[in-house]
Design a protein around this nucleic acid. Structure first.
Lengths: 342, 342
DNA sequence: ATGAAAGCGCTAACAC
DNA sequence: GTGTTAGCGCTTTCAT
């Protein structure tokens, strides 16, 4: 045992004694359920304050109540993308006195299910899942127990899943159209994980914009990335080595754009004079790069906020399942895009 | 109640039935404690797998066992500084199958104690506290119950506190000496929160370096900051407006240096030609700024790792309290410092 | 409106 | 080496 419980651990029973009531009455006061005579309630409240009572979340949860904890399942916490989403989550959690259990999966994808099950067994009242790669593995079990969960930046398996996403197709379309409007005809594309719907949507938006503007689609111009900086770097290299290289590159997130920028600099190419570059997300980094990166802003903080609010609503009202929302993206023009050299 | 417990919730009792043993034997197998006949152990293990058993952490914790959760108390999760520290924490937690309860205090300093108490009452087996501002408020209660906790980047009230810090004084000394060696004599200093020992140490290092190199100390050159970008911006403005402005600025973290850089750019000053600039931390951002920032590297990932390892060791061996460690800082020369204009 | 009592799933003595 | 049993602190019927 890691610690000894000292006398400082005062329980509902201590409060009951102090207030001269039964301990189920104390429970009622604490949970604000059913009627308690105002007079009694006062007595109890005062006793609680006097003793400095604090609820034991595990006991409450074990006994069948809410745990007042929500679980957050993320791939990697140390990215600006996640920092932004987290700010939104944290905002609303703090406002509602909820605790947060954080789980980062990294490469250990197999453990996702284990974690989700632990959470669903009472450790948490609900789950926030950011960018899951294979939610199929556990979503079914979540549904089976009517356990509230909201997916962020990933739609689920079907319409039953509650999710918060952005307009990825539109964003891809707009980014590409922006480049076309500038006069580009050969536009390289570095994609994200192709097993993620959002990444596929951005690519589809790219293709649609090309088609709508009668720009031929050259498969060589599409290179598969993985949302990591290094794949942006490699992708840009691939594109640059083409017999007929593009005059602009659309990376499916800012971090890959950063990687591309690095490669371009190393090869002595100037952005945007020699090569236009556009990203996706608008993480804080985007504005700091030189040149500042033109990108498609995704409202990440708001996504975190909305998802959390939806989850909390759902928890407090289990019958009322929230409906998924899609938030708008927006073109942020900075200095990494311009017309191509004549 | 947020969810209904379905038949899928199989407990230690189900496993016991399935294996044909008592449920305390199952508990023994699960916890790997005391001897169980290998044969019995196998039977139980198989039953567990067959049923897909998973321990209920709250029940375990309530019953007096370890919760296998550690609490992390931070001021703000959405900074690169924290992202780095978190990577270290996450690394070792994952390796030891520990869960993480995250609590961000923001401006709600009053809630720190409440949270710490909740954790200490069984929700967590130990606590990691990053950069607390007023730990006095609750550290006493932690000690009173022999509850394991490790402070990161903050020494405690006295030698009894276990902490992981970096050589802030040395770092401040080295940063300043670097500037002096370059030929600077008027060196501005933007400090961090002055209620934090680390920030005071960096300032003291600055003063000591000045004294050792016979550079007069001008109080006007010291402006109080708060580790936020905006205070770096304002601090630089103050310094620039001095009758006799400095030729170099030492900001107590990279984020304030970033703020200073912004102000400098807006005022048309070139770094490092018109003004040398040095930061502290070496967050990823530092290398990306233009010009890339010279700074004092603090081994943040390692700090997180060490602290977590110490905490876990302590938890598994309560009699053996770990001893605090101080990790070395290191000058990282990039392009934001040079000799002053003649 | 309030009290009594039965568990929630588990650990940790204590028996055998 | 394994079974029995008493709680951990709380929520929730069920009485009253």
């Amino acid at each position: 045992m890691a610690h000894k419980k000292t006398l400082a651990d005062i329980t509902i029973i201590d409060v009951a004694k102090e207030a001269g009531v039964s301990y189920s009455t104390v429970s009622r006061v604490v949970n604000n359920k059913s009627y308690v005579k105002p007079e009694t309630r006062d007595k109890v409240t005062q006793a609680m304050n006097r003793l400095g009572y604090q609820v034991n979340l595990q006991a409450r949860s074990l006994a069948g109540g809410n745990s007042h904890v929500i679980g957050l399942l993320v791939h990697n916490m140390s990215t600006q993308y996640m920092s932004e989403i987290f700010r939104g989550i944290d905002d609303v959690l703090a406002a509602h006195n909820y605790e947060l259990m954080l789980y980062t999966t990294h490469r250990r994808m197999t453990k996702e299910s284990t974690y989700v099950n632990m959470m669903a067994r009472g450790l948490a009242d609900g789950l926030l899942i950011v960018l899951p790669r294979q939610p199929e593995a556990y979503i079914e079990s979540l549904r089976a127990r009517d356990f509230p969960y909201v997916l962020i930046d990933q739609v689920g398996i079907d319409e039953n899943d509650v999710s918060v996403t952005a307009t990825n197709f539109q964003g891809g379309y707009e980014a590409t159209s922006h480049l076309i409007a500038l006069g580009h005809r050969r536009i390289g594309k570095i994609t994200g994980w192709m097993d993620m719907i959002g990444a596929r949507d951005r690519l589809d938006g790219y293709k649609a914009a090309l088609a709508d503007h009668d720009v031929p689609l050259d498969p060589q111009l599409i290179v598969i990335g993985d949302f990591e900086k290094s794949s942006g770097y490699r992708g840009a290299a691939t594109l640059l080595n083409l017999a007929e290289p593009p005059t602009a590159i659309f990376a499916s997130n800012d971090v890959m754009a950063q990687g591309a920028l690095e490669l371009l600099r190393e090869c002595g190419r100037h952005v945007p004079q020699d090569m236009s570059l556009i990203g996706f997300d608008d993480i804080p980094l985007a504005a700091i790069l030189s040149p500042p990166l033109t990108t498609l802003r995704q409202p990440m903080v708001e996504m975190g906020r909305r998802a959390t609010q939806m989850l909390l609503d759902w928890i407090s009202n289990p019958e009322q399942k929230p409906t998924s929302v899609t938030l708008p993206t927006e073109l942020v023009q900075r200095e990494s895009t311009s017309s191509p050299r004549p």
